[in-house]
Simulated scan of single mutants.
Amino acid sequence: MTTQTPGEDVPVRRIDRILAFMSLGLLALSILCFFAIMIGSAAGADFGAWIWAIVSVIVWIAPILAFVLLVTVLIMSFVRRTRANRGR
């Protein structure tokens, strides 16, 4: 005899997937930009150019946004599971 766990049949919505993949993408972009700065400084690149300013801002802002998106996905899934469990 199996017991059904609460919230087992709650479907994953499209917005949850989009936010999760956006979070993952922002983290990957941040890591790539970090390595670009490391390689650029080793190669002696001119960091006065506008592109390096954008790359450095991405390194600082993207992980914070990724964390906020991940927390948003978690809160949305907790609320959805709570509502589904109350309906039973």
Score class of each variant (00 low, 15 high):
2 T>Y: 06
56 S>V: 10
15 I>W: 05
71 V>R: 11
38 M>K: 04
45 A>D: 02
54 I>F: 08
76 M>K: 08
79 V>E: 09
37 I>S: 02
5 T>K: 12
2 T>H: 14
32 L>T: 02
29 L>N: 03
52 W>Y: 00
23 S>E: 00
35 F>M: 14
84 A>S: 14
5 T>Q: 11
14 R>W: 13
46 D>I: 04
52 W>N: 00
65 L>N: 10
80 R>V: 09
63 P>C: 03
61 I>V: 14
58 I>R: 04
59 V>I: 05
12 V>G: 00
46 D>H: 13
25 G>K: 05
86 R>Q: 01
11 P>I: 01
71 V>M: 12
1 M>R: 12
65 L>E: 13
87 G>Y: 12
72 T>G: 10
81 R>W: 04
53 A>L: 10
9 D>P: 00
60 W>V: 13
56 S>D: 09
46 D>E: 08
24 L>K: 04
12 V>W: 02
47 F>S: 02
87 G>K: 14
15 I>P: 00
18 I>V: 15
58 I>S: 06
37 I>N: 05
11 P>N: 03
87 G>M: 11
40 G>F: 05
83 R>D: 00
71 V>W: 12
56 S>T: 12
19 L>C: 13
79 V>W: 06
69 L>P: 09
18 I>F: 15
77 S>V: 03
58 I>Q: 07
65 L>G: 15
88 R>M: 07
59 V>A: 00
8 E>L: 06
52 W>I: 01
56 S>K: 11
6 P>K: 01
85 N>V: 04
12 V>I: 10
67 F>G: 08
49 A>W: 00
26 L>Y: 10
16 D>W: 10
20 A>Y: 11
7 G>R: 01
12 V>M: 04
38 M>G: 09
30 S>G: 12
10 V>K: 02
54 I>S: 09
15 I>Q: 15
88 R>L: 15
36 A>W: 01
48 G>K: 04
34 F>S: 15
48 G>Q: 11
39 I>D: 05
68 V>L: 14
21 F>V: 09
74 L>E: 07
62 A>S: 13
81 R>S: 07
76 M>L: 13
15 I>Y: 05
12 V>L: 01
61 I>H: 09
70 L>Q: 14
4 Q>G: 02
16 D>K: 12
51 I>Q: 04
3 T>M: 13
63 P>H: 04
